[in-house]
Amino acid sequence: MLRIFHTSGLALVFAAGLAAQPVFAETHNEILASIQKEASGTPGFQGFSAARGESFFKTKHGNEWSCSSCHTENPAVSGKHAKTDKVIQPLAPSVNAERFTDPGKVAKWFKRNCNDVLDRVCTPQEKGDVLTYLLTVK
């Protein structure tokens, strides 16, 4: 009897703890882990590379813009929208802790920006490389 009470009490504490968390908030490492999970399903996946992510970030891919057209070559500083000049807060989580903590926002912006820069969605490999690079920027 006591044991049952003990277990259900623990479950209650656990549930309360979960409810106290902001909805969907994750750490950037959790976001990276979920991209990695996606990438690991593709044949020949050998992990992410910050160097590859950096060159992907700074290179044009057939369209007018690269990632750095708006986010600048230094993701630790503010950028501005290439068309409207509206200020864009820094992308690097080291200076902008909010970045890569909301999976919905991450998915929304990768979809939009990859479409603008590459005319297609990005592969999990490309997304993981870029995030790995951004996490190295101090």
Partner: peptide, 12 residues
């Protein structure tokens, strides 16, 4: 919105 004045601005 997916072709919003030259940018993809799509929403769910």
């Amino acid at each position: 919105l997916d072709k919003h004045f030259g940018s993809d601005a799509s929403l769910d």
